[in-house]
Amino acid sequence: MSGERVALVVVSHSGGLADGVAEVAAQMAPDVTVRPAGGLSDGGIGTDFEAVLAAVTEADTGSGVVVLYDLGSAQMTAEMAVESLPEPEAAVVVDAPLVEGAIAAAVSAQGGGDRAAVADAARAAAGRSEVTDTAESADGADSEDAAAAESGAKAEITLANEVGLHARPAALLARCVADVDADVRITLGDTEADARSVFSLMSLTARKGDTVVVTATGTQAEDAIARITALAERNFDE
């Protein structure tokens, strides 16, 4: 396994759709290779096995590839391409919503997630609106005990940037804590989000002027709070 990031391939029936999804995902994750493989070689609608195979082969820098697809036969084409690789285990085809999955995967890859983590991030994008579930699971007795045993930290941040926790700032926030050894939660009112999930953050719909509470537990809790506070003070680089 090299130090390179996991790469993504976006398989779509349409060249325009694949290019667009790759463009949006790449904007969230500037250091991640995101290859589009959409449409037939003559520009028609469909999936081109050779093009998908080439994209997966070219995208892999040694850390593996996560392949996302749009509809039915794109999945089959993607699976055939992966099975045709010299080392099929180098890539994985994930069942995830294309746009949300690609962005969540790109952010996870940017943060240094391994192939399994990046694939999980894509799959989890399907349930992104269930922020309350995230909150409930964190309320379990086990996690409370664990939290008490570990060091915790907390901060209140008032969002001063124009768009609040919209897509790009959410991606920046998720990335800045991706490699921190701490469980980081962002709370707005009664709603709690996992700070590592772009979509969980976005579904808070925190706007300019809102005050969110950041709580972190784990060995690097203080570091996590410091990073997020610094990011907010920079107005999310707007």
Binding site: T47, E79, M80
Partner: peptide, 15 residues
């Protein structure tokens, strides 16, 4: 067939 068909029939008949 896998390379040329484009729709689901390509991977299915190809397989």
């Amino acid at each position: 067939l896998i390379s040329k068909v484009g729709g689901a029939a390509g991977p299915l008949y190809g397989t």
